Simulated scan of single mutants.
Amino acid sequence: MSRWGITIPLTGVPLPAHRELVEQLPDLGYTDAWSAETAGADAFSPLLLASQWAPSLRLGTAIVPVYTRGPGLLAMSAATLAECAPGRFVLGIGTSSPVIVEGWNAGEFTEPFARSRDTLRFLRSALAGEKVTESYPTFSVNRFRLERPADPAPPVMLAALRPGMLRLAAREADGAITNWLAPTDVPRIREVVGPDLELVARIFVCPTEDAEAARNLGRMLISSYLTVPVYRAFHDWLGRGEALAPMHEAWAAGERKKANAVIPDEVVDDLVVHGSPQRCRERIQSYVDNGLTTPVIALLPTGGDPLEQVRALAPR
C-alpha cells in the first residue's frame, strides 16, 4: 500500500470539528484527503482547512464539475489551494451530472467529453501561468492570465468511467478518477489507461457487521447513482447490465421501492464495502492488489461515531 485516502468532510460532522481528526490522519497512516462537490461543502474549502491542519497530507478534489465554474474561476480556485499546499494538491475535474449542472446550477450539460477535454487543455496552460486566448470547441477565453500561479502547478486528473474518457485521461491528464466499481473491475480499467497512470477511486465503505443494514443503505445509493445514464452505461460496460436490468425497469416505471428490492445482494457486496473494520481494510486493500493506485474511502453513515470509524479504518 502506497496511498490511503479519506473523503472529507464526513457526513454529520461540522467542518470546524474535523480539525483534531485531520491533524491525526498522517500518524494513522492516511496519505490523502479528498473532497467531493454535490450540495454540501464546496470542493475547495475543506481542503484549504486541511492544508493548514495537516501539512503533510496530499489533497485532491474528486471532483469539481467543469460546468459550474467558469474556466478562469476554476483555475483561480485551483491555484489558490495549490499555493496553500505547494506540491500537495491535485485538481480533479469531471462532468458531474445533469441534475447537479442543470437542475441545481442553471447550466447546460452539453458535449461532456468535449467540455472535459477543452477544460483540461485550458487548465494546463492557465495553471502554468500562461496568458490564454483561445477559442476551444466548447468555450472561448480571451487574455486570461493568473495573477498568482502556483509553483509548482498542480497536477490535473480527470474523472472517467468508460473507454473514451479513460483514454483522454491517459493521454492528457495526470491521472484518472473513478468510482462505483468492485475490486475485480480494476483490471478492466487498467486495460484502457495502461499500467503507469495514477488511478484514483472513491470506495463506499459501511463499517458495520449488520449486513442487512449495510445492504439496505447500499441499495438506496446504487439505485440513486446507477440509474444515471452515464453510470448505467459504465456498468453495462463492466458486465452488470443483466443483473441491474430489473432495477432499471422498476426505476423507469416510478417504482422506487421495487427498484431497491430487486438489486441482488451480490451487486451490493461487489460495490459497497461492509463488515468489521478489519474486513473493510482487507477489502479496500484488494482494490490496490488489483491495480488501483489510490483508494479514497467514502464513509457511509452507520449510526456509529464517524471520527472513530475513520480511525478504525486506518491502515495502521
Rank of each mutant, 00 (worst) to 15 (best):
P9N: 13
N105E: 10
R316T: 13
V230A: 07
F113N: 06
L48P: 00
A54L: 07
S116P: 04
V262F: 04
D174M: 09
S77M: 09
G175N: 09
V230D: 00
A182S: 15
V156D: 00
Y136H: 09
T80N: 02
A41H: 08
A201C: 10
V64K: 00
D27Q: 03
R162Q: 13
N290T: 11
L221K: 11
F204T: 13
L238C: 01
S224T: 13
A41W: 04
P301L: 15
A54F: 02
T110S: 07
E198I: 03
R281A: 07
N290G: 12
K131I: 14
P306Y: 02
V200M: 11
R143G: 11
E20N: 12
T227Q: 04
W237T: 03
A252W: 03
E108P: 02
E198Y: 03
A41D: 04
E20G: 12
E255C: 06
C280P: 05
L74R: 04
G164H: 10
T227N: 00
R3V: 13
R117I: 07
R115H: 07
R117P: 01
M76G: 01
P71D: 09
L91D: 02
C84P: 06
D269Y: 05
V186I: 15
A43R: 03
P98D: 05
G94A: 09
D174L: 05
W4A: 03
L168Q: 06
L123N: 00
A159D: 04
Y287Q: 10
L123H: 01
R232Y: 03
S286V: 13
G29H: 05
N290A: 15
G87K: 05
S45H: 03
D269W: 03
V22F: 09
R256A: 12
S116W: 02
F144A: 11
L238N: 02
C84V: 10
R88C: 02
F122H: 06
S223W: 03
Q285N: 08
R232V: 04
H18E: 05
R190V: 07
T11F: 14
V66T: 12
A314G: 12
R188T: 14
R311P: 00
A201G: 06
P137R: 08
Q285V: 06
P207S: 10
E308S: 14
L120W: 00
D42T: 06
P152D: 01
L123W: 05
D118F: 06
A85V: 07
L28H: 05
L299H: 11
A79R: 06
C84Q: 05
A150W: 01
A106T: 11
A36H: 08
R215K: 12
I203R: 03
V13H: 03
H235P: 02
G291N: 10
A201R: 04
S77E: 08
